[in-house]
């Protein structure tokens, strides 16, 4: 057992994947000597060399475009995008090339590319450093989209993502990089990559969340318990594909659901979950599925982010509203 942070969990997971498979290469801006601006790749270049831990020129389209080429040549590139807001110069390569290669080649070409993106707000950063663009990828056929919510998942999910033959957009909750947990590497991962996890069991309503909002929702559930309300918390872990079986099972049990994410409200992951739950669990529902999310504005200047981001109070307000029906 070792105590690790979420950031260190990804670091250890990358290290394990690189040790297991010499074709795994890591690439991005400032990931070598500096170890990345969040130190997630710290020490990797020293131990695996500059051929496998590549400080790239400053161009995101170049990072992803060359990762495609490396993948064609049999490598498994793990690309770091420095911040959420800087993935867009690479968007064309991701959407038109990475996502469609397998389809266009009738399955002959695989794209085992992982794109790591530190995302979300709450760190007091300047613009373009706090965004939650997961929907912009989850909406694209051919991409898989996941987000880890705790250090143990961080360790295993990054390895599972690297092992995936489909491209995976791996969203890392940057404000949770320093969260700690005990990790026992000898215990195999409890779940496959694309399965959700019930992190707290309850009967009155379900909170669906992922990434940075998992901690917030667990705290909300603890607070609600003091008022005699038993909330179930489901860490979705996978946004595309959604683990609908776990989602439906929870809703059939609690009959009420609130989806929580930092990403804007309209057409966010919550929209899809609400639609699917309505389609499949209509007769179990006591209330419409509600969403507690970021607002439909660009991410605001940091002095306002506390108001913008869903927090314990807003989650509980959402719970109050589903309970009122």
């Amino acid at each position: 057992m070792t105590k690790i942070t979420l950031g260190k969990g990804i670091n250890a997971g990358l290290r394990a994947a690189m040790e297991a498979d010499p074709k795994v290469v890591v690439m991005g801006e400032d990931i070598g000597k500096l170890g990345g601006v969040f130190r997630v790749t710290e020490g990797l270049q020293k131990d695996f060399g500059e051929d496998r831990v590549i400080d790239t020129p400053l161009a995101e389209s170049g990072i992803i475009g060359t990762a495609v080429g490396l993948a064609l040549r049999g490598y498994r590139p793990v690309c770091e995008i420095q911040f959420d807001g800087f993935v867009f110069p690479a968007y064309d390569q991701i959407i038109s090339q990475v996502a469609k290669m397998h389809y266009r080649s009738m399955g002959r070409i695989k794209m085992p590319v992982v794109i790591r993106i530190p995302y979300g707000g709450g760190i007091g950063a300047v613009e373009h450093h706090s965004e939650s663009p997961e929907t912009l990828f989850a909406h694209v056929p051919g991409l898989k989209v996941v987000s880890c919510g705790d250090p143990v998942d961080a360790y295993w999910m990054i390895q599972q993502a690297i092992a995936s033959d489909d491209p995976v957009i791996f969203f890392e909750p940057k404000r949770r990089y320093h969260e700690k947990a005990e990790l026992d590497e000898s215990v195999p991962p409890a779940l496959p990559l694309h399965q959700a996890k019930v992190v707290r069991s309850g009967t009155d309503a379900t909170l669906f969340c992922y990434g940075p909002m998992v901690k917030t929702c667990v705290q909300a559930a603890e607070a609600a318990a003091e008022d005699g309300r038993q909330l179930e918390v489901v860490d979705l872990r996978t946004i595309s594909p959604l683990d609908l079986a776990t989602i439906f099972a929870s809703v059939r049990k609690t009959r009420r659901a609130v989806v929580v994410h930092e990403a804007p409200y309209t057409l966010g992951p919550g929209s899809e979950i609400a639609a699917r739950v309505t389609e499949e669990c209509f007769y179990h529902l006591e209330a419409p599925v509600l969403r507690v999310t970021g607002y439909d504005t660009p991410y605001p200047p940091s002095r306002m982010e506390e108001e913008y981001l869903p927090d314990l109070d807003r989650v509980l307000d959402g719970v109050d509203r589903v309970m009122e029906y």
């Binding site: 400053l58 807001g85 007091g124 300047v126 200047p301």
Partner: peptide, 25 residues
């Protein structure tokens, strides 16, 4: 303002022919 987190560029570019700061490289 941008660095304090109260705005994202608190000046009118036309006033001084100086566009807003651009962070996306």
């Amino acid at each position: 303002g941008l660095f304090r987190g109260v705005d994202q560029g608190g000046w009118d570019p036309k006033d001084n022919n100086f566009h807003l700061y651009t962070i996306v490289i």
